[in-house]
Amino acid sequence: MIELIAQNPFIASLVALVGLGLVFGALLGFAAVKFKTEGDPIADQIESLLPQTQCGQCGYPGCRPYAAAIADGDDINKCPPGGEATIAALADLLGVEAKPLDAAEAAVPSVAFIREDECIGCTKCIQACPVDAILGSAKHMHTVIASECTGCDLCVEPCPVDCIDMRPIETNLQTWHWDKPKPVEDLIASDRGTAAKSGAAA
């Protein structure tokens, strides 16, 4: 047997390759059982990047379903609340090209506001809110827990008296900060006049 193998290089290589194949196959099979991961780790990672507004603007009923859809190959540019930052993060995670947002514009962070003297207490908005951020009961005025509101605007549509506004979150003294300076190296030629002038002044 051994002699046969030794004398026939063809058989020798065949044996070696098959043997290697078996060894690595067994190794992989063992690893698959031993290091089995529960759930869908990619979908989890994707979900952790989504803004969790649960707004459904992507066409899925919440962030988790959209994360699962992305993991299955859906586009990464369907999340207006996340905007370019989320797309960039997703592109980074998945190693794909970042695409422009699939919407007119990124959503401005905002919070729902019920004009309370117009609220008739119909509870429709409460039923619509994906994160239970509206308080109130039937025939009693409702109000939004601003700190829990994700700004998804799902409550605006159901309101029969249109008493819900989406108000952009305003800057206050606590949240105000300096913006990043506009990089002057990126000045385009049309700005040249001003840049040169102030440069000369310096």
């Binding site: 969790q52 994906p130 994160v131 239970d132 829990e148």
Partner: peptide, 21 residues
């Protein structure tokens, strides 16, 4: 800081959404 807050808020929103579901 904003990103950290957003992250925390997203966590909370997710919890609330899951609880509601």
């Amino acid at each position: 800081r904003q990103a950290q807050q957003d992250k925390m808020k997203a966590e909370r929103s997710k919890e609330r959404f899951e609880a509601r579901t």
